[in-house]
Amino acid sequence: MENDSTLYVGLDVHKDSIMVAYAIGMGDVELLGKTGTTHIEVDRLCKRLQSKARHIVVVYEAGPCGYGLYRRLTEKGFDCMVCAPSLIPRKPGERVKTDRRDAIKLVRSLRAGDLSAVHVPTVEDEAFRDLARAWSSAREDLKQARCRLKSFLLSHGVRYVGRPDWGPTHRRWLSTFSFDSAWQQLAFNEHRRTIEDRLAQCERLEVALREAVPNWRFYPAVLALQAMRGIQFTSAVGLASELGDLSRFEHPRQLMAWLGVTPSEHSSGGKRRQGSITKTGNSYARKLLVESAWSYRHPARVSIDIQRRHEGIPKPIIDRAWDAQLRLCRRYRKLVARGKSAHVAIIAVARELTGFIWDIGRLGMSLASPLGPRSA
């Protein structure tokens, strides 16, 4: 072993290869070369790194390869970080990008403390998030399939007289409609069959979510979030699976910034300019947040559905959810009265709604024992 200084390691990770660069302490950055991604090759890389220093700090960019490498390196005793690619410092004049340069840049940025780590979920949390995302993907596929069918009918001059909301009446009309051409009828039937398949897939996944969520450690947070207006079961599951442990955010403003609902800013000297929201972070969680915020356009009230979701929920959570209704409904009306568009007002409501989600989610976890026995 050469010395006891910290060994900084940068990994440029791809599907089949890993480019490795390192630096011992404040020494020069050197290339260790390229290695494979199999367990044997990663173990061989770990032994080579352990021969250079006792304390080893490793970093690689978050990407499509997931967190398997992170977990393997932490098991070996390494201090590993998965950094956010969009927050890596870059020189404006750089026009050459290679695996070697990327690995060297990671080492230098890691040593300077210029990298921002992403949250790595546990194996169980990641598995549940995969299930929740599968439902979201199926729902998106269903939406696209419905749009394709509507476009197909419109292109042939077929229009539904009533409201095409995919309700019982609309579906009954679709089942009885037919084309004169056998080829067009075949295409029409295939479009309908695709919708039916996606509906069945969504139902299967939702049933799986309802069966799995009581065994998940964030189940109390899911129940607590459902006490809020605009957040039903699937929205609560989606938000909880994407946000993870809310205690990692010390202040709700950190969660707002993580969701990308804070305004962008370009200020200099005495001038302060704020623009549209940053839209950084998790896009799916931000989508769920904005969709939930639209329900606060209407006056505050506790509907029958919300009353049903309040059953078995501790009173402090219900009171906090009511406070959210009063504040956010009033906030929307004030912004619209000042001349703001509905979309701008909803984004402002979504930003404040984030604070209530942070508070109610943490409150639900702290009151986990009363929430445990209730089913989803």
Rank of each mutant, 00 (worst) to 15 (best):
L11T: 08
V13T: 08
H14I: 00
S17R: 13
M19K: 15
V20A: 07
A23H: 06
I24E: 09
I24C: 12
V29G: 05
E41F: 03
D43M: 02
K47Y: 03
Q50C: 06
S51E: 05
V58F: 02
L69Y: 12
Y70W: 13
T74A: 06
E75N: 10
K76W: 05
D79S: 13
P89M: 08
G93E: 08
V96F: 07
V96L: 09
V96P: 01
R100D: 06
R101G: 04
R101A: 10
R101D: 04
L106C: 00
G113A: 10
G113D: 07
A117V: 05
D125H: 11
L131W: 13
A132D: 02
R133G: 02
A134T: 14
E140L: 12
L149N: 01
K150Q: 13
R163Y: 12
R163P: 00
D165A: 13
G167N: 06
G167T: 03
H170N: 03
A182S: 13
A182E: 15
Q184E: 14
Q185K: 02
R193Y: 04
D197S: 08
R198A: 12
A200I: 06
A200H: 06
L205Q: 13
A208H: 07
A208Q: 14
R210D: 04
E211Q: 13
Y219F: 14
A224P: 03
Q226A: 09
A227H: 06
I231W: 00
A236G: 07
A236Q: 00
G238K: 11
G238H: 09
L243H: 05
E250F: 08
H251T: 09
P252I: 01
E265W: 04
E265C: 11
H266F: 13
G269S: 12
R272C: 09
G281Q: 05
G281L: 05
W294S: 00
A300L: 00
R301K: 14
D305H: 14
I306D: 01
R309V: 07
I318H: 01
D319A: 11
L328K: 06
C329F: 03
C329S: 09
R331V: 01
R331W: 01
A337W: 04
L353Y: 03
L363T: 10
G364K: 04
A368S: 15
P370G: 13
G372N: 14
A376N: 09
